[in-house]
Amino acid sequence: MLLVHCPVCGAEGDETDFHGGGQAHVRRPATHDPVNVSDEAQRDYLFIRHNAKGLHFERWRCDRGCGKWFHAARDTVTMEFKAYYGITELPPRELMEQATGEWAGYFKDKLK
């Protein structure tokens, strides 16, 4: 039973007070250019997700609290929440640097 903190309203609660929204930073291709969305881009958007062992980045909603969405960096092995950040933000820099595997690839050009 994870203990989750909402960075928007400060509420702290059992994970049942929240709604887990899956992987963070998934890009919706149609938002940017609805006419030129390749099958691969749409496929990645719909189905392809990172499967991180360790540091992972997720979306959460403060369901039973302020109702706002936010991001969390969480270790999928120890379940520890490393950081919470805004829904339109990227993770803290040091966490982007610590990311490995697929996430490292994703954050590479964002760290430049």
Binding site: R64, G65, G67
Partner: peptide, 10 residues
């Protein structure tokens, strides 16, 4: 003031 989960409801 706090919105919350109570019993099985909001």
């Amino acid at each position: 003031v706090r919105r919350m989960h109570y019993a099985e409801i909001a």
